[in-house]
């Protein structure tokens, strides 16, 4: 299971980096989201397989799982939701202004 998770993290991350380096801005936004999912999986794997039962206050005796990585992922997911909404809004404005999705055409500043 560890090997499988490691491969899943690696593949998600690699696909995310590949998409992010594309010229099309929509694909690079998709790459950003894939990378953030890969990182959520990575954070999850830091606390996985330590215990077997869900951890909550007043639980039955047993071997509880580490709840902290799950709390971290929850925060990271909420933040990435906001990021996705914002990046889509910025891309909407930019596609109206520049009439293109090619990031090589966005050179107004370096001129």
């Amino acid at each position: 299971m560890e090997i499988l998770t490691a491969f899943a993290i690696g593949l998600t991350f690699a696909a995310g980096v590949y998409q992010m380096l594309q010229r099309n801005v929509i694909r690079s936004a998709i790459g950003l989201m894939m990378m953030s999912n890969g990182i959520s999986l990575y954070l999850l794997s830091t606390g996985a397989w330590i215990g077997e039962k869900a951890a909550y206050v007043g639980q039955a005796p047993g071997d509880p799982v580490d709840p902290l990585p799950q709390a971290l992922i929850l925060t990271a997911i909420v933040i990435s939701l906001g990021i996705t909404a914002f990046i889509l809004a910025v891309m909407f404005i930019m596609s109206k202004r520049y009439k293109t999705c090619d990031s090589d055409a966005l050179t107004g500043l370096s001129r």
Partner: peptide, 18 residues
């Protein structure tokens, strides 16, 4: 060009966050 600058910075700041 504010939007363009924000777009460019946003990718960088997200990489920093990752």
């Amino acid at each position: 060009f504010g939007t363009e600058a924000a777009f460019k910075y946003f990718f960088m700041s997200q990489l920093a966050a990752f």
